[in-house]
Amino acid sequence: MRGVIYLLLSLIFLSSCVSKKSITYFQNDKIDLSKASNSFKTVFKPDDLLEITILSENIESVKPFNLPAATFSAATNLVAGNPQQQRYLINKNGEIDFPLIGKLKLGGLTREEAIKLLNIKLNPDYVKDPTINIRIANFKVTVLGDVQKPGTYTIPSERITILEAIGLAGDLNISGQRNGILVTREEGDEKKFYRVDLLSNKIFTSPVYYLQQNDVVYIDQNKAKAQSAATNQNTGLFVSIGSILISLIAVLTR
Rank of each mutant, 00 (worst) to 15 (best):
K103M: 14
K103T: 14
L104A: 05
L104M: 14
K105I: 06
K105Q: 15
K105P: 04
L106A: 01
L106M: 12
L106I: 12
L106Q: 02
G108F: 03
G108M: 08
G108Q: 09
L109G: 05
L109V: 03
T110A: 13
T110G: 11
R111T: 14
E112G: 00
E113D: 11
E113L: 03
A114T: 03
A114W: 00
A114I: 00
K116F: 06
K116S: 14
K116M: 08
K116L: 09
L117D: 14
L117M: 08
L118F: 12
N119F: 15
N119I: 00
I120F: 10
K121S: 14
K121A: 15
L122K: 08
L122N: 02
N123M: 14
N123I: 13
N123A: 15
P124H: 15
P124R: 13
D125C: 07
D125T: 10
Y126W: 13
Y126M: 05
V127N: 11
K128E: 07
D129L: 15
P130E: 01
P130A: 01
T131M: 04
I132R: 01
I132D: 00
I132C: 00
N133K: 12
N133E: 10
N133P: 02
N133Y: 13
N133M: 13
I134C: 00
I136Y: 02
I136S: 01
A137T: 13
A137W: 09
A137R: 12
A137P: 11
K140Y: 08
K140L: 13
V143H: 12
V143C: 11
V143W: 08
L144F: 04
L144I: 08
G145N: 07
D146W: 01
V147W: 01
Q148G: 04
Q148S: 08
K149Q: 06
K149M: 04
P150L: 13
G151A: 05
T152E: 08
T152A: 07
Y153H: 04
Y153K: 06
T154D: 05
I155M: 07
I155V: 11
S157T: 15
E158G: 04
E158R: 02
T161F: 01
I162D: 07
I162T: 07
I162R: 04
E164N: 03
E164R: 03
E164W: 00
G167L: 04
G167M: 03
G167E: 08
L168P: 06
A169D: 06
G170S: 04
G170M: 06
L172M: 10
I174C: 04
I174E: 12
